[in-house]
Design a protein around this nucleic acid. Structure first.
Length: 151
DNA sequence: GCCAACGTTGGC
DNA sequence: GCCAACGTTGGC
């Protein structure tokens, strides 16, 4: 899951009550569908984008079932969607729970050097999705690069 | 700040 | 349903 650290970083997540934040504001159908496939306990790589050194900052996990993103119904929200209906919500979120900051930040440049990550969705040209699937192998390799024992 | 990539919108 | 225009993302 991607976030701009200037807006909301892994350190910000850790400081939240219980280390939990509802991941609102996703407004792309493909990304939404990935969220809808999430289950409690799913592991998350926490990626910092649009910053000085983009890369994976650490680990989080899914802490709720997918549910309606309330900001779609709030006219005052930046994420308001006039076309979204209560009876059939258009946009979905999960709660994200802090797990750990990597002892070693894993920059995007390092990810690109890995033979084992050639097919990773995050590294595909023109990728713009804020939520992307990761294979267990990719997850494990990136944990090793980050200096965290695999879980 | 630039630009490539891609999603969305809206005219037809 | 096509496609040009436009907006956004995000690395560099």
């Amino acid at each position: 899951m991607k976030t701009e650290p200037d807006t909301f970083s892994l350190a910000d997540l850790e400081k939240r009550a219980g280390g939990i934040e509802p991941w609102n504001g996703v407004r792309n159908y493909q990304a939404r569908n990935f969220i809808r496939a999430m289950r409690v306990g799913d592991r998350v790589l926490f990626y910092h984008s649009s910053c000085e050194i983009p890369g994976v900052a650490g680990l989080a996990e899914v802490a709720s079932a997918p549910r309606a993103d309330e900001t779609q119904f709030d006219p005052k929200s930046d994420f308001y969607d006039a076309g979204a209906k209560r009876a059939d919500p258009r946009w979905t979120l999960v709660d994200v729970h802090f797990v750990a900051a990597f002892p070693k930040f894993v920059p995007l440049t390092t990810l690109r050097e890995q033979a084992g990550l050639k097919k990773m969705r995050l590294l595909a040209p023109g990728n713009r999705l804020s939520v992307l699937p990761v294979t267990p192998e990719e997850y494990q390799l990136i944990c090793q690069l980050g200096g965290t024992k695999k879980k």
